[in-house]
């Protein structure tokens, strides 16, 4: 569970997030949409402290990550993140990418980590790529490996930062398919995306952000079919 209260983030004089409060429940899939520059990626990156937080509080599984005494590395093991640019480790094979954190951080034995890694690769449909280097994979395959890598830490929450935005159109589907499966299994997910189809089909709740605030939130049906705010209407009329 994630609880965000009065979250503020500034870059210099630029206030990117203004007083965001939201609660994300266990097993919920929350999709964050909004125009570029609305602060949605920054919001996501605050949830595992990839951005420093300038005000307010964020509780992950009951622990306040803005508290100096909280061990952020421990929290991060429970919050997986998938990036727009994949960020696979190019000097390591696919299976090594997946094993690295469990072995070094969780101190899992390499044999166990490999076994688990292969199982995750089967799950994302890439069992045959275990010994390949990331450079030899397509964008869609890279992103599926990145998802498997995050899942290897057995996180309670998964954050997706525009996971399909850097992909060729024909590869978007395979990544979304893996994400849908994950949602079905009951993973708590926060997804920043431009894939409105995914938001409608898989999202339990949609947050529309603009100008650093959550303008409107509700279930996908409400937001997409009957938006209340002018800004939401304007945005949706452009993207749908």
């Amino acid at each position: 569970m994630i609880e965000v209260k009065n979250l503020k983030k500034t870059f210099g004089n630029n206030e990117v997030l203004k007083d965001i409060s939201v609660t994300i429940n266990p097993q919920e899939v929350v999709v964050v949409i909004g125009p570029s520059g609305s602060g949605k990626s920054t919001f996501l990156r605050c949830l595992n402290l990839l951005e420093t937080i300038n005000g307010g509080h964020v509780w992950i599984e009951g622990k306040d990550i803005t508290d100096k005494n909280t061990d952020i590395n421990k929290i991060r093991t429970e919050v997986g993140m998938v990036f727009q640019q994949f960020n696979l480790f190019p000097h390591k094979k696919v299976i090594e990418n997946i094993m690295l954190a469990p072995v070094k951080v969780r101190k899992v034995s390499p044999e166990k980590a490999r076994e688990k890694g292969l199982e995750l690769l089967r799950k994302v449909g890439l069992a045959d790529k275990a010994e390949a280097y990331p450079d030899s994979l397509s964008g869609g395959q890279k992103q599926r490996v990145a998802i498997a890598r995050a899942l290897a830490m057995e996180p309670k929450i998964m954050l997706f930062d525009e996971p399909t935005s850097a992909l060729d159109p024909e590869m978007v589907g395979e990544v979304l398919e893996v994400m849908k499966q994950l949602a079905k299994e009951g993973m708590t997910m926060v997804v920043v995306t431009h894939e409105m189809g995914f938001a409608k089909e898989v999202g339990d709740r949609v947050l529309f952000m603009d100008g650093g605030v959550i303008v409107e939130e509700g279930n996908p049906k409400e937001i997409f079919e009957n938006p209340q705010e002018e800004r939401t209407k304007a945005f949706l009329s452009k993207v749908l």
Binding site: L50, K74, F83, Q85, L88, A101, R106
Partner: peptide, 15 residues
């Protein structure tokens, strides 16, 4: 080295 590499490593819980 791209800063995404550091972010990915940190997001996995590495110090």
């Amino acid at each position: 080295i791209d800063k995404g590499q550091m972010e990915a490593a940190r997001s996995l819980g590495m110090n």
